[in-house]
Computed example of a mutant assay.
Amino acid sequence: MSARILLVDDDAELTELLRDYLEREGFAVRTSHDGATGVTAALSNRYDIVVLDIMMPGMSGIEALARIRAESSIPVIMLTARGDDADRVTGLELGADDYVPKPCTPRELAARIRAILKRTSAVAVAPTLPIVVGTLSVYPAQRRVERAGVPFDFTSTEFNLLETLARNAGQPVSKADLSQKGLGRPLKRFDRSIDVHMSSIRHKLGNLADGRSCIQTVIRKGYQLIVE
């Protein structure tokens, strides 16, 4: 079955260009040209991933993302203006899985979509044992996280990053490795995506009993999950 993509952008010409390319690549694509309609469609459970433009009249992509995240963890890729770091960081903080600067090539967007779907749609044929780090349990097959029996809600990218840290618990993992394994793409210069995602994961997990964050920054080496 083809992966189902919802493309939300008020630029009708660009939308048609992207849809034609993505359909030739084997995706099933539906489009929406405003934020409100896009939110309704994204929450319909009919799609595997949403591509959402930030700059739209009426309801912006940022507001649309916030409404989607209030009810769903569906993967979301933001289309952002090139060089607009503020919007990118805001989108990531609200739970976007990744972003693609505009103008973008259809090929680059398709690659980003595949990278995210490859991680989110991977289901183990045989039961997979959880990764246990102290009171933290990560279940790769179910893409589920618990700490001391309490479940957590993570976006697909946050889960990918936490899983990578859990598999290397007690050892630092470089941002380059986290970007490749968590986002499915090489780390770009000045890219703050990993830092923003890590900040969100830390906030959701909270601190250890001694007040430390369970995810530590290791200078010039990356991030490390502490073994409790």
Rank of each mutant, 00 (worst) to 15 (best):
residue 212 R to A: 10
residue 201 I to N: 11
residue 194 I to P: 10
residue 205 L to R: 03
residue 125 V to R: 04
residue 182 G to T: 00
residue 184 G to S: 02
residue 179 S to E: 01
residue 158 E to H: 05
residue 167 R to W: 00
residue 182 G to A: 03
residue 182 G to K: 02
residue 138 V to N: 07
residue 209 A to G: 04
residue 198 M to L: 12
residue 209 A to C: 02
residue 159 F to C: 06
residue 157 T to H: 09
residue 134 G to K: 06
residue 197 H to R: 12
residue 165 L to S: 14
residue 197 H to N: 11
residue 184 G to D: 01
residue 170 G to D: 00
residue 192 R to I: 10
residue 173 V to A: 13
residue 190 F to R: 15
residue 197 H to L: 13
residue 171 Q to C: 04
residue 187 L to K: 09
residue 127 P to Q: 05
residue 196 V to T: 14
residue 142 Q to V: 00
residue 134 G to R: 09
residue 178 L to C: 10
residue 176 A to P: 13
residue 206 G to S: 08
residue 213 S to P: 07
residue 130 P to E: 07
residue 188 K to R: 15
residue 136 L to H: 04
residue 204 K to Q: 06
residue 143 R to P: 01
residue 172 P to I: 12
residue 159 F to D: 03
residue 181 K to Y: 01
residue 193 S to L: 10
residue 214 C to A: 09
residue 120 T to D: 02
residue 207 N to P: 07
residue 133 V to L: 11
residue 217 T to V: 15
residue 129 L to C: 08
residue 150 V to K: 13
residue 181 K to H: 04
residue 209 A to S: 14
residue 147 R to S: 06
residue 123 V to P: 06
residue 150 V to P: 05
residue 128 T to M: 12
residue 178 L to D: 10
residue 216 Q to H: 09
residue 176 A to I: 12
residue 190 F to H: 15
residue 121 S to P: 07
residue 182 G to S: 05
residue 146 E to D: 12
residue 133 V to F: 09
residue 165 L to I: 11
residue 144 R to K: 06
residue 204 K to T: 02
residue 148 A to P: 03
residue 190 F to I: 07
residue 183 L to C: 14
residue 132 V to F: 03
residue 162 L to S: 08
residue 131 I to V: 09
residue 219 I to E: 15
residue 218 V to W: 09
residue 124 A to H: 12
residue 194 I to E: 09
residue 196 V to H: 11
residue 180 Q to T: 04
residue 192 R to W: 11
residue 217 T to I: 14
residue 216 Q to L: 11
residue 215 I to W: 11
residue 137 S to A: 14
residue 146 E to R: 12
residue 190 F to P: 13
residue 159 F to S: 05
residue 145 V to E: 04
residue 215 I to T: 11
residue 167 R to N: 00
residue 164 T to P: 14
residue 214 C to K: 05
residue 216 Q to R: 12
residue 164 T to Q: 15
residue 157 T to V: 09
residue 171 Q to D: 06
residue 191 D to N: 15
residue 169 A to M: 08
residue 210 D to T: 06
residue 130 P to Q: 08
residue 175 K to P: 11
